[in-house]
Design a protein around this nucleic acid. Structure first.
Lengths: 151, 151
DNA sequence: TATTGACCTTCCAGTAGGGGGAAGGATTAT
DNA sequence: ATAATCCTTCCCCCTACTGGAAGGTCAATA
């Protein structure tokens, strides 16, 4: 199986598979004489594992740990659980931040009649102090989504 | 007022102010003879406007539109509202995606005893088909957070 | 006055997680 | 035979910044 077929079988793209190989998340694929990458069914299982972890928002670094634990027959399930719980906590922080934005925006939007008149509570809300100032912590104390795939 | 003072007055950093100037989000600041940037109270108002919009998750491109509308005395409030509503919809998609991740992860985590035994439903869930496969749409149909600051 | 320290300037590099596309070789279908 | 579709590596692009180097400037102190 070449990279394109492995890609559609796993739900990743060929670009992603090469990227993960380069990042040392996955073991370099075997090559044909003409240096085409080849994938076995077992390799595709690994790729599917990666895709599922990625779909759950794990970073490449986190996935490295998860794959190492996956391959380790003597792993402690507590190690896996702690990674998962930490990730859940991070996701919940992100969700809370997004909900705070939605809340403020909806509040502003419901007071905007949204016609041709220039009077606009949304713009006015941005231009003067609103709940936003208090709703979000200081700029440097915040946490980032950092390229996380909520795709 | 120089850039450091404008930064603390607005809640941005000096780096961000220079970046926004470079990106043409804000008008280049006046300079002293020794090419220090100087900011008036009015300039700081603009910076505060930018910070609030940023805190609500708007991208630099969206903020360009919002600032243009802010400065346009004859703007239609409907134009502002449509930008805001579109942004709310985007935020809600992101939130739904994150909640789906949390849901799946919590489901897996509650079935993991989390001790020294190697048996781990979380890892097993990644390795074989789970609700994840159905919970998320195909990889190319997804939407991204793309550097958005949920910081 | 000299010097220190806290500013400021520009520029370059790097981040995460890839996407896009060029240049060129390989394989496959007609 | 030839065209279409793969594959390879390579490098640049994206967002929204942050960090740091090299160097100029300004205010206070010894």
């Amino acid at each position: 199986m070449n990279i394109g077929q492995a890609a559609s079988a796993s739900g990743l793209t060929a670009k992603m598979i090469r990227y993960y190989e380069q990042m040392k998340l996955i073991i370099p694929a075997h090559r044909t004489e003409s240096s085409y990458r080849t994938y076995s069914d077992s390799d595709v299982n690994t790729l599917r594992f990666v895709r599922r972890a990625r779909d759950l928002g794990f970073s490449v670094e986190q996935m490295k740990s998860l794959i190492a634990l996956w391959r380790d027959r003597s792993r402690a399930s507590g190690d896996v659980k702690s990674i998962a719980l930490e990730h859940i906590a991070e996701l919940e922080r992100k969700a809370a931040s997004i909900h705070a934005m939605i809340h403020t925006l909806k509040h502003l939007a419901t007071h905007c009649h949204g016609d041709e008149r220039p009077d606009c509570p949304i713009i006015d809300g941005f231009a003067s102090a609103t709940a936003t100032d208090d709703a979000l912590p200081p700029i440097n104390a915040r946490f980032g989504l950092n390229g996380m795939k909520t795709d």
